[in-house]
Amino acid sequence: MLQSFKLALKSIWSNKMRSALTMFGIVIGVASVIILVSLLNGYMQNQLSQWADLGAKNINVTVVNQPSRSVSLEDMYAFRDANSTLFEGVSPAVSPGNGTLKVGSVKSESTTITGVSETYAALTEKTVAEGRFLNYADVVAKQEVCVLGAYPAQKLFGSSDAALGQNVTLGGKNLQVVGVLTRKSKGRMEESGTDDVMLLPYSTALRFSGTSKPGAYVFSTASTDKAQASAAKQALQDYLYSIFRDKKNYHLMAMSEMLDQINKMMAQMSVLMGGIAGISLFVAGVGVMNIMLVSVTERTREIGIRKALGARPGVILQQFVLEAITTSVFGGLIGIGIGSGILNIVTIFLGYSVAATPSAVFISFTVSVAIGLLFGYMPAKRAAALNPIDALRSE
Rank of each mutant, 00 (worst) to 15 (best):
L134G: 04
I325F: 15
P313A: 03
N46V: 09
M289C: 06
G274W: 02
L281T: 10
G210D: 04
E298D: 09
L123D: 03
N387R: 05
Q66L: 07
T326D: 11
A232M: 07
T114K: 03
N60T: 14
K381Q: 10
E191A: 12
S11T: 10
L259I: 05
K6E: 08
S220N: 09
G287L: 05
S295T: 15
L200K: 01
T127P: 02
G341V: 08
S49E: 06
S230E: 10
G314R: 15
F375I: 14
T100C: 09
M266H: 01
K248P: 00
I348M: 14
T221P: 05
T119D: 12
L252R: 14
V346R: 10
D81L: 07
A31M: 11
M273G: 01
G314I: 12
L236M: 06
L148R: 01
T326I: 10
I336F: 08
I35H: 11
A93G: 06
A370I: 12
I316R: 04
I303G: 00
P388V: 03
V71I: 07
A216K: 11
S353T: 07
I325S: 10
I12M: 04
A205H: 01
T169W: 06
Y241H: 10
G165A: 06
A205P: 02
P358Y: 06
S394A: 12
T22Y: 07
A20N: 08
V145A: 03
E191D: 15
V61L: 08
A235Q: 07
I305H: 12
E74P: 07
K173Y: 02
D161E: 05
K173P: 01
A8R: 09
N65R: 08
W13D: 08
N174Y: 06
D75A: 11
L181Y: 00
A235H: 02
D195V: 07
Q154E: 09
T119A: 09
G97D: 00
Y43W: 07
T114G: 04
V64Y: 15
I35W: 02
V296D: 00
R18T: 02
E144M: 11
Y377V: 13
S192M: 15
K247Q: 04
L309T: 01
L206Y: 04
A370L: 05
S295C: 00
A385E: 13
L240E: 00
I305K: 05
V315Q: 07
I325C: 10
C146M: 14
L343Q: 06
M44V: 11
A56I: 07
G149M: 03
V346D: 03
E74F: 15
K213R: 14
T347H: 03
A121P: 00
V94S: 01
F5N: 13
T204I: 03
L206K: 10
Q50M: 15
P214E: 06
F330P: 13
S209P: 02
V354S: 01
S4M: 05
A370M: 15
E323G: 11
R80L: 04
L322K: 09
S340C: 03
N174W: 14
S105Q: 09
S328Q: 08
